[in-house]
Amino acid sequence: MSMLHTVNKSPFENSSVASCISMCAKSSSILFIEDAVISVMKSTKFAEMIESSLKDFKIYALKPDLEARGLSLNNVIEGVEIIEYEGFVDLTTEHDSVQSWL
């Protein structure tokens, strides 16, 4: 069964992003929302972790949260898909279950 994982915390704040990635089964997807969208930016110290995770999972980030934080869509790590709330809804229905890493 495929799972959608959502994370909403900055990786600089706590270990939710790392925990999520370490417990994500292949064929799962990860969606970064709220403060977690920082994770998908190029040249942070977490970029390498995200880039290597892209080999195993699909990774998404919520566009309104990137824009709200003044983060340029051009600086998002390649391979990360940028989606709207409609895309968030689609991800929840396309996967069998949803785990929020709160």
Binding site: M1, S2, M3, C24, A25, S28, D96, S97, S100
Partner: peptide, 15 residues
């Protein structure tokens, strides 16, 4: 193993 068990669930809640 936990990841596998988690992906077999119908409803996952995290508090």
């Amino acid at each position: 193993e936990l990841s596998k068990i988690m992906s077999q669930q119908d409803v996952v809640m995290s508090f």
